[in-house]
Design a protein around this nucleic acid. Structure first.
Lengths: 340, 340
DNA sequence: TGCTGGCACTCCGACGGTCTGAGTGCCAGT
DNA sequence: ACTGGCACTCAGACCGTCGGAGTGCCAGCA
């Protein structure tokens, strides 16, 4: 019946909330004290039996309270919780903290710190990825003799440079350089990075044969800059929070730490979770995780400004509403800052 | 008497070695089995009593074996151990692994990984510090309108850039820019970074008053690049090893992890330990550490190529000879690679 | 039909006592 | 100066007991 179905969900929600708070299995009596369910302990017990049947909660042993399963958390996240809005204080703290950043590295460092201290979990952030960024400007600078410095400026603030040897003496004000510069910029500015190499190759067709050698070298340098820096990076903060989170990681603590050092894995994880569109915050709970060593953890992540992913990793016993709110708020601010 | 003094030191050495291996307190009998001391258990017991008197070892409780104290490890490191040379295999592994690096970030990342997996401790490495580096080249690039990009290339391979607004329209081939570029380079190339701002200020005197504004902006940008990036960085690897190292960190694990995230502290630590000259590997044991949360750990560190510090952090129960050998060898290779 | 109070049952974890073995300190003998 | 022997200590393992928390089920009630 719908009414009692409803109550059962209330019970599940109460169990999740209490268990997250106390980290102790929660029994029928304890529930009544903290929540106004309007029914007796016996009824709650019946409900719990059903919830257990359905695989949403489980009892560590005969005479202990219940603990949510991964499926229980999943239901809680999907249907029983609203994202907690952050307090004014928290918002202004985020703003203040992030606005102090002086450069991209600093933004990333501050963001992860902030997120880990807001959530008391491990914070993970992907560097703004080149592959989703666009070209802001390309600069070519003769730096003596046949050498040319190629500088690629990306809209996220990253700068890549290469020095190449063109095999031909170049005057600092050579027409060739000025010409190439304006052509390269006109075909690439505003475009996403991955499309750049193709555009440049197309451009080569139009270059006078005697200049083709120089142009090719430039194109290669830019393609190289794009490719090499697509090796993306990821930054962590707050690993100590894992150790602090009590008995949530009986023995697996070190394997979780190991997993977190596998940046390649984290990148893939961020990548897969950041595909969610818009403001969505993705949550992956326990066994849902594709990567085995993280099967004892939950991941709450989102993408920021189309440039990369960011989120937290923690025990499945996590305050999801709070974590989701923090992740979302921080992602918004970061996107804003990177745009500016 | 000198002979028995000698034997007592043998006993101490044996205790340290066994304890490091097994992480169990070592008793008089166990010692006899593993080491040829040529005396009876009773004699060893007497020696141990003296060692305990001297504060070099201690018994966790009445009827357990002995465990080295910080002072015991100190004596062991100073007088009882030789730095274990690495095996051929290890050396070639180091070489192979580090030579695959593609850029500075990669060198640092690979180095810390390598060191943590060689020693099974947490590896720490300071980025090659700007303050001991020299200027390789300075480039000034007009990028449209009054804006000028200032690029600083450092001999360790780092590149810093700033975009400044000069307040004056600049043609791409402006004489002023070319002139400034050559002047700035001539007074700064090859000099250590910290001396650069002063040189530039001196240079300003010689600039025509009408150009002074632009020159000042450039000088400020460079000074800024030097200063801001003297905010040094540090990279860690292998924190999972801490969790693995058994009961060496009863409760303090999370505070140690916290401490390791305080990069400022690590930098100071590296700084203070890297003052040792030449090939020396510095060891700081337990309570010797200046920073409180690291009083339960030992640090083995050295400097590489005058550019920064590098080392490992682990429990005081550490294989010092092995750690020292690994740190020294890795530091040498890194210095070599950064030079090339 | 769904809720409730009551009751018997289970089982974890704390407590206290016992025992054993490893390890010690000391002493008398060589 | 070293050794064998001996009495002593004590942490940790083992064990049975007990209390309490929590459950499942049932009969009764709205």
């Amino acid at each position: 019946m719908s009414v009692s179905d409803d109550r059962r969900l209330h019970v599940l929600r109460a169990i999740v909330q209490d268990y997250v708070r106390t980290s102790e299995p929660v029994g029928s009596k304890a529930l009544l004290e903290r929540h106004q369910l309007g029914v007796s302990a016996a009824t709650v017990r019946n409900d719990m039996a059903v919830l257990e049947e359905e695989g949403l909660i489980t009892a560590p042993h005969t005479s202990a309270g219940r603990v949510p399963t991964d499926a229980g958390y999943r239901l809680f996240v999907d249907r029983l919780s609203a994202v907690k809005p952050l307090g004014r204080g928290e918002r202004s703290a985020i703003e203040r903290f992030l606005h102090g950043a002086v450069d991209l590295d600093d933004v990333v460092a501050r963001t992860t710190r902030l997120l880990s201290s807001l959530t008391h979990q491990v914070a993970v952030m992907q560097y703004p990825s080149l592959s989703r960024s666009t070209v802001r400007h390309v600069e070519l600078v003769p730096i003596g003799g046949p050498r040319l410095m190629v500088v690629l400026i990306v809209n996220t603030g990253r700068v890549e440079q290469r020095v190449i040897d063109t095999g031909r003496e170049l005057a600092p004000d050579a027409d060739l350089v000025a010409d190439l510069r304006s052509r390269v910029n006109s075909v690439s500015v505003g475009l996403p990075l991955p499309s750049v190499p193709a555009r440049l190759n197309a451009l080569l067709e139009d270059v006078a044969p005697e200049d083709r050698h120089v142009a090719t070298a430039v194109a290669r340098a830019l393609a190289d800059a794009v490719a090499e820096q697509s090796e993306e990076r990821v930054v962590l903060s707050g690993t100590a929070n894992l150790a602090r989170s009590g008995n949530d990681f009986p023995t697996s603590l070190s394997s979780v730490l190991d997993a977190l050092e596998e940046h390649v894995v984290l990148l893939r994880l961020m990548g897969s979770m950041a595909t969610v569109d818009g403001d969505q915050v993705a949550v992956s709970i326990g066994m849902e995780n594709p990567y085995e060593p993280l099967r004892t953890t939950s991941v709450v992540a989102t993408s920021y400004g189309d440039a990369g992913g960011l989120g937290v990793v923690g025990p499945t016993r996590m305050d999801y509403p709070q974590a989701m709110a923090a992740v979302r708020a921080v992602a918004r601010y970061v996107a804003e800052i990177l745009d500016g």
